[in-house]
């Protein structure tokens, strides 16, 4: 169960997020909103990487910002750009990193890393250098690195950004098969079509909160209205 209670973030006098509250134990959760609405910041707060100025985020009862060690076992996050999150030069080192940081022994780390590679049929990638992999392949390495840690919740921050259609389809199929709870942050309602629970963030606040079937059409209509108004003066930043 993911619980957000009155989460607010204020930086330099600006309210990036204001009073975000919702709770969910749905298997597939989506967060939609325009660019600049605060959804990426929200993703980081739910992952426990940014401490909110007010409010708490609890996952299975754990305060993710305060109890980092426990949080790392519960929640993982996939960032938008794999080049900004891959730290190691080879696939096996990158996948093993989180495991060793969780305190696994060398033997267990190696076993679990190879296990996740095998699960995706990517055992040959073991010693491959990251820089020879394509964008989509790197994104998969990032996903495997997160999955190896077996978190209960995985946050996806615009994971399809910049991927071509076939790669996006592949990644989408992979994500469908994951047992963990997924929290998918996106500006594109299409990718959330089969999701259960969706939260719509607008200008740092919860605009709507409900089942995908009712919320997404409302969101799409609203976005189209803004698009028709043809007002580039409305900077979202």
């Amino acid at each position: 169960m993911l619980c957000l209670a009155d989460v607010s973030l204020r930086i330099d006098g600006r309210d990036i997020l204001d009073g975000i509250s919702f709770q969910t134990s749905a298997r597939r959760v989506g967060v939609v909103g325009r660019n600049g609405s605060g959804k990426t910041t929200l993703a980081r707060i739910i992952a426990g990487l940014v401490v909110p100025t007010k409010g708490t985020v609890r996952l299975s009862g754990i305060d993710v910002a305060k109890d980092r060690r426990a949080a790392l076992r519960e929640v993982g996050i996939l960032f938008q750009n794999p080049d900004h999150q891959i730290i190691f030069p080879t696939v096996i080192e990158e996948v093993s990193f989180g495991l060793s940081q969780l305190g696994c022994s060398k033997a267990e780390t190696q076993m679990r890393a190879e296990e996740i590679l095998a699960r995706f049929g990517r055992s040959p990638w073991r010693d491959a250098a990251i820089h020879v992999l394509s964008q989509g392949q790197r994104q998969l390495v990032c996903l495997m690195s997160v999955l190896a840690m077996k978190p209960r919740l995985i946050i996806l921050d615009e994971p399809f950004a910049g991927l071509d259609i076939p790669t996006a389809m592949h990644l989408s199929r992979v994500l469908d098969g994951i047992e963990a709870q997924l929290l998918h942050i996106t500006h594109d309602p299409e990718v959330l079509r089969d999701y259960d629970h969706v939260i719509w963030i607008d200008a740092g606040r919860v605009a709507q909160d409900g089942p995908a079937t009712t919320l997404l059409p409302a969101y799409q209509t609203h976005m189209a209205q803004i698009g028709d108004a043809d007002d580039l003066a409305q900077l979202t930043g």
Binding site: F88, P89, A129, I130, H131
Partner: peptide
């Protein structure tokens, strides 16, 4: 050394 391995 690590950079030489990551980006020959």
């Amino acid at each position: 050394a690590a950079l030489a391995r990551a980006r020959p």
